[in-house]
């Protein structure tokens, strides 16, 4: 049964595996982080490819500004980023409102430091497939139109794709059980657009900034998907930094990180690229207290215990 040809095959298999392994260096080796590397990460709320492009540029910019090694570590789900922040695998993270609160509750002394101009005044948009026949409305009570419709959120832990929308739906008297079937959790804002556009779900909700940016890029077919309502404003995305970075990189490091972001200037073409990818005009300072409302809402619907 086991003729020499098969042995030859097995050896060839090992050999080719060995060769291929040499050709492609281990992925871990490429990202091997030295102890004095400032590791940043972000919640995976958009296409991973877009995130890689954006945070690659952010890392380069911070490296130049701060004079330390900066590495972006991609993470696959919301809870995993919070956890990595808690264990200290990453030093600073671009969190959503909810995940930022969850992370700070688990790391004593962690601070919300910087956010975009739009985050202080953030909105979600409810969208619908045009064929569903849901008319746009201005008042929150219009959300009752979702009753008996199929509907998808973004990620379970998304502030703009789940937490605040569910809060507003509750306020309008729409319970999840009023929807047709169970609500979906698409996983990301981009996927929410695509699923509603394709008609998989009649309606969905996502972060307004992602919506605007995809609209501007011409990636949305507005004949197929329309905005039906824009939520009131709330605080959302922000950078949260671990308190121990000052021990690692010296006192005043957090202040220097803040300065680096505040120095981003739309008039400078290199800066503008980053700002555009963030969908912002500029960065502003923020503080932990801005998120007290988010925390309250999260406790109310059980996302913080």
């Amino acid at each position: 049964m086991f003729r020499p040809s098969k042995i030859g095959f097995a050896l060839a298999l090992c050999a080719s595996a060995a060769l291929a392994a040499c050709a492609a260096p281990p992925p871990a080796a490429r990202q091997a982080a030295q102890p004095q590397t400032f590791v940043i990460s972000a919640i995976p709320d958009q296409d991973p490819e877009k995130l890689n492009r954006l945070y690659g540029k952010v890392s380069d910019y911070l490296k130049e500004q701060l004079g330390v090694q900066v590495v972006y570590k991609p993470v696959t789900d919301y809870a995993a980023v919070v956890n990595a922040f808690r264990t200290g695998d990453v030093d600073m993270v671009w969190f959503g409102g909810l995940t930022g609160v969850q992370a700070r509750l688990q790391v004593d002394g962690a601070q919300a430091i910087i956010q975009r101009d739009i985050d202080a005044n953030f909105h979600s948009v409810f969208i619908a497939n045009a064929a569903a026949g849901i008319q746009p409305f201005d008042d929150i009570s219009g959300l009752t139109a979702l009753k008996g419709r199929t509907f998808t959120f973004g990620s379970e832990s998304s502030t703009s794709g789940r937490l605040m929308p569910q809060f507003f739906m509750n306020k309008a008297g729409v319970a999840l059980s009023d929807l047709k079937g169970e609500p979906g959790f698409s996983g990301s804002h981009d996927k929410t657009i695509k699923l509603v556009e394709a008609g998989t779900y009649e309606a969905g909700v996502l972060n307004e900034q992602v919506w605007k940016s995809r609209l501007a890029a011409g990636e949305v077919d507005t004949n197929k998907v329309i905005v039906i309502w824009r939520t009131p404003a709330y605080y959302d995305y922000h950078w949260v930094v671990r308190p121990d970075v000052e021990q690692k990189f010296g006192a005043g490091f957090i202040q220097r990180v803040k300065q680096a972001f505040l120095a981003l200037d739309a008039a400078n073409p290199a800066h503008k690229e980053i700002l555009d990818l963030f969908g912002a005009q500029k960065f502003i300072e923020t503080k932990n207290e801005n998120y007290a409302d988010i925390e309250a809402v999260a406790r109310q619907i059980g996302k913080i215990k």
Partner: peptide, 28 residues
């Protein structure tokens, strides 16, 4: 079968001896 069996075992042991450290090195 005596010969094919023990030869197969020898090849397997050799393959394991090569592949295991290689894999560990690769995933680091």
């Amino acid at each position: 079968r005596a010969t094919s069996g023990s030869r197969a075992l020898a090849v397997l042991l050799a393959a394991a001896a090569v592949l295991t450290p290689l894999s560990l090195w690769y995933v680091q």
